[in-house]
Design a protein around this nucleic acid. Structure first.
Lengths: 132, 132
DNA sequence: GCAGCTACATGCAACTTGCAGATTGCGTGT
DNA sequence: ACACGCAATCTGCAAGTTGCATGTAGCTGC
């Protein structure tokens, strides 16, 4: 159906990306700080559509560029260094604003499925199926 | 914040696009058939973020290519011909599936704002009632 | 040493999108 | 007749995004 963007030519299930990926990451960071690899796994366990790890890393860098998260290198534990992210005040504000817009969006969708009978002036009918 | 896709270099408020645009269009078409120009205006009046009319037309063509809507030319009224769109059974099914995924997404977002204190290790599902 | 895992990053093709502009049809005013 | 504006659709292009594969490192176990 031509989703968000990017290379879609191959196979597979839908992937999480774009604003929905970005806001999901912000939501996870509201709970506690985290790093990219961890967030990728949390997304996998969340019941949301899967998302590519490369896309997650790039989304985090973009969120940082927008000032919605901040990061620092964490070398306290063993293993490769981790870039830890935390939510900023601007990021939390953005998340709240987004949720409000999301509520309107959900009203539109569920309102449609509710089968509202307010037909709103639709007397179109009896038309043919041709292309000129 | 570098949203879904496309050219973002200039100014302005966020725009509706991608899957959220597509599903909003499907929702409007659940109510009654409509054509592109009309849908563009309904979107403007819906409280959702605005969306570019060119993007709306292209989204409708893609939905048709995916079999989620079907179209025919309507020349019954005066004025330029209109390409009328109607929702198909596949489109309605897709819409329902999408809404289910959307509910999970919204749980993630609002769950974050609710300030849940389950710091991590949240693999025992079925325990997501409100915390007292 | 070597395989495997963790953790992050990037190159590339395929794709989407915002904006501006083009096109067509109809109605109104002068 | 003519210009003008609106309704309605479509398209070209640059700027941007994403899926996939791959590459870089550091650490652990054998």
């Amino acid at each position: 159906m031509a989703e968000g963007s990017g290379r879609k030519r191959t196979t597979s299930e839908p992937r999480l990306h774009g604003e929905m990926l970005a806001t999901s990451l912000l939501a996870f960071l509201k709970g506690c700080n985290a790093y990219g690899y961890q967030l990728t796994q949390q997304l996998s366990d969340s019941g949301l559509p899967q998302s590519d790890s490369g896309t997650v890393y790039r989304a985090l860098r973009q969120l940082e560029g927008s000032g919605f998260v901040s990061s620092f290198w964490d070398t306290s534990d063993q293993g490769p260094a981790r870039r830890m992210y935390s939510l900023t005040a601007a990021g939390e504000l953005f998340l709240r604003t987004w949720i409000e817009a999301l509520n309107r969006y959900q009203e539109v969708l569920t309102g449609a499925l509710a089968g509202f009978d307010t037909t709103l002036a639709s007397e179109d009918e009896g038309t043919e199926e041709e292309t000129p």
